[in-house]
């Protein structure tokens, strides 16, 4: 058996260093990361990377910071599998491997000049945070911006400091809700779809960006269509099992589409007839 090193391999890793971590909730942890060679990740909002721990494995994770910050990027990781659980034990200065960025993110150049309705459910705020922070960095390029956020309970709220800041801003409209309140909660109670009818938008010039748990999509899409937003302007990001990120391993397929290469962000027109998407 002969063996050669391949520099162009799709499985080659870039070294990266953890600059900062912060526990967001019991299950979700925030990481700020920089590539070791000093280069920029150069991602689009909504793209993901494969995070690698040698000897344990890889896991696909959305980048949750704006590409306008070029010297580092953020990840928000929920501890669910063997890679993500181990990631939670890492701290500042530790090294990880990454591949990517992969896939198609939110088409910000097309959204530019339009209004934007962002709908985040639970951990869905992570990929959307890359879009939101990008939009805020380039606020002048966009029309009205609405952010609707929902989660199960107040204690599951991610990035609550930033959510608080966004709610104070005059250049965007922010609303949030929880499925179940706790005694300190003074805000809306109910599923996220209850916030949609109250949003004042001009449907034909509005893009909706929706990320949340799979059960959320059908209901949210229904409300958005009721609002009159064209199908092409409803953007959804999907989570699937992934091993390669290169459109080969087959795990992430939704019918004829590969989430890792054709997605993870799709417009509703592309996938409305794909029953495996919902």
């Amino acid at each position: 058996m002969e063996k050669v090193v391949i520099k162009d391999s799709g499985y080659r890793l870039k070294k990266a260093t953890i600059l900062r971590t912060k526990n967001l909730t019991r299950n979700e942890k925030f990481f700020e990361i920089a590539l070791k060679d000093g280069s920029s990740l150069d991602h689009e909002p909504g793209q993901f990377i494969m995070v690698s721990l040698l000897g344990i494995g890889e896991s696909p994770i959305s980048v949750c910071s704006s590409p306008s910050r070029r010297d580092s990027f953020d990840l928000c990781i929920r501890a669910v599998g063997k890679v993500t659980r181990r990631l939670h034990t890492l701290k500042k200065g530790d090294e990880i491997g990454i591949r990517g960025p992969y896939g198609r993110g939110f088409p910000v150049n097309i959204i530019t000049g339009n209004d934007l309705l962002i709908i985040a459910g639970g951990l869905g705020i992570a990929p959307l945070r890359s879009l939101i922070t990008y939009v805020l960095d380039n606020r002048r390029d966009f029309g009205k911006v609405h952010i609707l956020f929902g989660c199960k309970e107040p204690k599951e709220m991610l990035f609550s400091d930033e959510l608080e800041q966004w709610s104070q801003r005059t250049d965007l409209h922010y609303a949030c809700t929880v499925d179940r309140a706790d005694p300190e909660w003074a805000g809306n109670v109910g599923v996220i779809t209850t916030l949609i009818p109250g949003v004042d938008i001009e449907p034909l010039r509005t893009f909706a960006a929706v990320v949340g748990p799979p059960v959320m999509y059908t209901f949210v899409i229904k409300e958005l269509l009721k609002k009159g937003i064209p199908k092409r302007q409803i953007l959804l990001s999907f989570e699937r099992n992934m091993a390669c990120g290169n459109g080969k391993c087959g795990h992430c397929q939704i019918q004829n589409l590969y989430v890792c290469q054709d997605g993870p962000v799709f417009n509703y027109e592309q996938i409305k007839n794909l029953s495996e998407a919902f």
């Binding site: 058996m1 002969e2 063996k3 050669v4 090193v5 391949i6 520099k7 391999s9 499985y11 080659r12 890793l13 040698l54 491997g97």
Partner: peptide, 8 residues
């Protein structure tokens, strides 16, 4: 880590 291919 180094990416490799083995072949015969």
């Amino acid at each position: 880590a180094e990416a490799v291919v083995e072949y015969e």
